[in-house]
Amino acid sequence: MNFILKKLTTMIITLLVLSFLSFAAFEMVGDPVATILGTNATPEAAAELRAELGLDRPLPVRYGSWLVDFFRGDWGESYIYHIPVRDMIHEKFVITVTLTLMGFFLAVLMAIPIGLYSARREGQWIDRAITVLSQILMAIPPFFVAILLTIFFGLLLKIFTPGTFVSYQDNLGKFVGYMIFPAISIALPRIAMTVKMLRTTVLGEMQKDYIRTAYSRGHSRQTALKQHAFKNGLLPVITFLAANMAEMLAGCIVIEQIFSVPGIGRLLMTSISSRDIPTVEAIVMILALWVMIVHFIGELLNDAVDPRLHG
């Protein structure tokens, strides 16, 4: 319990520091009033707008009220589209989270059986092939996988047409179908890393005394591996996958760009270039929250599997 409280405190402090820094950083970018009014703004109009947006108050005051509003669910209004940021982000967030989750489950569903299989066939040719292949796949950046998939499945086989994204609100089936290739792009390097890690940890467990005890009780290598080594070998993999979930979300920013998926990553990029600060700040906050929560869940899972870790 003490450990959870400690983690939670660190999490909240990091979140506050990060949000304040990003808030302050965008102060330096330039005057949002100039962005909204354009070049032909009169000083009177500028001052009026500044008062209306609350920009005439000092920075810490503005940050405080922004933070309070954020957690109340009021994320401000877009400088560019003049609609509430929350409405704008909602759909895009669902899209990106779907993409991340698809990639994540793909990674888990593929990596755990393959890693276990590889460990079971240790030293045989199939194990070597898996090891070499995963070593190579690990080094291939997700965006290159995306390009290869686009060329191979889009251009040569014509299985999917890039740029024909359909929102989940219009057609759920087509939406999921379109997201499969982006999800593969994100998942592939993660699958390779997880396979490698699971194989190493499981084989490491197989060297330990309790496995010898299991053998002496008449277990075969197969059952010893399945019933004992697997469970303990999975432990470090859980934390690793949780950290991956955060990396995958960041990976989405690039992948969305390649597959023209209108997710939160694309919105972040366009908002940054158009200096739509309320939108950028809300996205940064959401991404940060997501990363924190995922890490936290990873820690909790770890704690549940092995309570010794945190005393």
């Binding site: 990091t14 950083a25 960041a250 690039v254």
Partner: peptide, 22 residues
């Protein structure tokens, strides 16, 4: 080390994106 933990918790590309934007 706590500062380092805080930085590494976030994917570096994401942080870099925001800083470069500024």
């Amino acid at each position: 080390m706590r500062i380092c933990d805080g930085i590494t918790a976030f994917p570096s590309v994401m942080l870099a994106l925001i800083i470069i934007a500024v």
